[in-house]
């Protein structure tokens, strides 16, 4: 478990990172927190020619509220997000999602940008990017561009990031007043990759009617699953147990999970219903003041 040979370069600015990527060529990889990349290197699953270390690019380490959005620099550590009072106050779903990521030691190093760019099908942050239609800012040789999840996530571990591009910022629209949230997950052990996970955010009006529901599931496909149909079923309705169950059913019929030694396709499909229901109920209870 020793990595094959690679060249190492460290950048101090985004601009420098982009130019180092260009110099290195198409087989280079960005090293952020390294919590997925380093094990993959040691297993020799990946053999990049160069590692471009962005850990010293401090301009990418921030959490700010801006124009009704929470803007987070790509190099912000997961642990920083977990402990951020601003995040907890404005977008507690992100706090809750963070708590599901691995273990403290992993969160101390892991970064939000790294997690989203790595696009593991069981990762928590991509689910929130999908759920909240977050904007992703990407910097490349020709300047910066902004994209959203439907363009960004391509398939397993694959995004539309081009070889010389760096993901720099994620902007999450803040939930509207009257919103409740939940991130629930099924894993074999604490900190394991989710077999199935569901993020939910529901916004209720004063009369107990659902104004908006957002759902994103992980572990059930190549990247997080969003269900416009299930969300539409909930919109404008009272969220009864029956309706919640129907939304869960809808999602379980939509997803196409793959099985592995821990969870079969059938099991993941069934759990997508169970965890959609659990997430919705928990989110709803939080609108009503529950913990």
């Amino acid at each position: 478990m020793k990595p094959p040979k690679f060249e190492y370069r460290a950048a101090r600015t985004v601009e420098e990172a982009v130019s180092l990527l260009q110099e290195a060529g198409e087989d280079a990889k960005i090293l952020a927190g390294g919590q997925s990349l380093v094990p993959m290197l040691n297993f020799r699953l990946t053999r990049p020619s160069h590692l471009i270390d962005i850990n010293k690019v401090s301009e990418l380490d921030y959490i700010r509220e801006k124009d009704g959005k929470l803007a987070i620099g790509a190099l912000t550590r997961e642990r920083t997000i977990e402990r951020s009072a601003l995040v907890r106050q404005k977008f507690p779903l992100l706090t809750e999602a963070t708590e599901w990521i691995g273990h403290v030691q992993i969160r101390n190093r892991g970064t939000i940008g790294g997690s989203v760019a790595h696009a593991d099908p069981a990762s928590e942050y991509p689910a929130l990017v999908v759920l909240s239609d977050a904007e992703l800012t990407i910097q490349g040789p020709d300047g910066s561009r902004t994209t959203t999840w439907d363009e960004f996530f391509v398939t397993y571990l694959t995004t539309s990031l081009q070889p010389f591009e760096v993901l720099t910022e994620l902007r999450f629209p803040l939930p509207k007043p009257g919103s409740g949230y939940a991130f629930v997950e099924l894993a074999r052990r604490h900190g394991d990759f989710a077999l199935v996970g569901c993020a939910a955010q529901v916004t209720m009006n004063g009369k107990g009617t659902c104004q908006e529901a957002r759902l994103a599931l992980i572990g059930v496909g190549p990247f997080p699953h969003r269900s416009p149909d299930a969300e539409a079923m909930l919109k404008g309705q009272k969220l009864t147990d029956k309706l919640i169950s129907e939304a869960g059913q809808k999602i379980s019929e939509e997803v196409e999970p793959e099985g592995d030694m821990h969870a079969s396709t059938e099991y993941r499909r069934a759990m997508s219903k169970v965890f959609t229901e659990r997430a919705l109920k928990k989110a709803l209870s939080r609108v009503q003041g529950g913990k």
């Binding site: 074999r188 604490h190 030694m261």
Partner: peptide, 28 residues
């Protein structure tokens, strides 16, 4: 409840890292 040195039907070993060989931790 957790650990298994699992093989697929062709004799491939499936649990060669702690991702899949689920040694319980203090949390379990």
């Amino acid at each position: 409840l957790y650990e298994e040195m699992a093989y697929d039907e062709s004799g491939q070993f499936l649990a060669a890292s702690f991702m899949d060989y689920l040694c319980p931790t203090a949390m379990e």
